[in-house]
């Protein structure tokens, strides 16, 4: 893959490799995500999707390879620094702050705009200035009625919606979503897909998915991983016709494979 970066590429990896005690989870992955697109990273269980995802967000250090974001080498950065550059991730297991209220969950992300919050002597009532924006974000994901509930009490699908609202609160340039529909009921899947589509406007989204149906409707480009390697890349139509991709999904109809799984 070309090393020169044009303005269209927001995130690019080269030779990205992660080994765990000899086991190669991700091997020589070259990924190129175009600005403003929804890019899907799919593959069967154990394909290295989540590892790849954790490498991109710096939650894991790569064994080899480089990651460039907005033309800048972020390979050696810490996760919090990457987040500050506008590259914000979600988690496979719904990542909310269970003992904070739904409103506080979003507000703690908005609070980042203050810079460091080390002022322990001041009242948190000054955070109320973020309430209006937090409520807007909650309205976007249909959670207004739950604003004062503890986030831990929300049903699973709503937690995912809250997580997306929290991520959006940072106004990220690029969102990385780790299996946003994992373990969801059918209606919830539809709702989250619609939500992702809506919030992707003006941003770039990289989506890790196990469920091919989800990516078919959403993604502009799809990268298929198997055994830590890139197997195919292209539009849904292109990759779904690829015989190797079909084989990787063990001969099952890719369209019906779904449910939970670790990448």
């Amino acid at each position: 893959m070309a090393t020169t970066q044009d303005g269209d590429t927001i995130l690019e990896t080269e030779g990205l490799t992660k080994e765990f005690r000899g086991f190669v989870a991700v091997s020589d992955v070259a990924l190129r995500v175009k600005r403003g697109t929804i890019h899907g990273l799919i593959g069967p269980n154990g394909a290295g999707k989540t590892t790849c995802f954790n490498l991109l967000t710096k939650f894991l250090p790569p064994t080899r390879g480089t990651i460039r974001y907005e033309g800048r080498d972020i390979t050696g950065m810490k996760p919090a620094e990457v987040a500050r550059l506008g590259l914000v991730r979600s988690f496979q297991i719904s990542a909310v702050f269970p003992h904070l209220t739904v409103l506080e969950n979003v507000r703690v992300a908005l609070q980042r705009a203050r810079g460091g919050s080390f002022d322990f002597w001041r009242s948190d009532s000054l955070l109320k200035s973020f309430d209006a924006r937090a409520m807007e974000l909650l309205e976007d994901v249909g959670l207004t009625a739950y604003a004062r509930h503890n986030a831990g009490e929300l049903p699973y699908g709503r937690k995912r919606a809250l997580e997306i609202a929290t991520t959006l609160a940072l106004d990220p340039r690029m969102m990385l979503l780790d299996e946003p529909t994992a373990g969801m009921t059918h209606e919830d899947v539809g709702r989250i897909m619609a939500l992702v589509q809506r919030v992707a406007k003006g941003r770039t989204v990289l989506l890790v998915e196990h469920n091919l149906t989800v990516v078919s409707g959403l993604c502009d480009t799809i990268t298929v991983l198997t055994r830590g390697r890139v197997l195919a890349e292209g539009t849904y139509m292109e990759v779904s016709r690829n015989p190797e991709v079909k084989a990787a999904y063990l001969g099952t109809d890719p369209g019906i494979s779904g449910g939970e799984g670790h990448g």
Partner: peptide
């Protein structure tokens, strides 16, 4: 409540 999430928020 959730340290990795706090990190991911920057």
């Amino acid at each position: 409540d959730n340290e990795p999430r706090a990190t991911s928020l920057g």
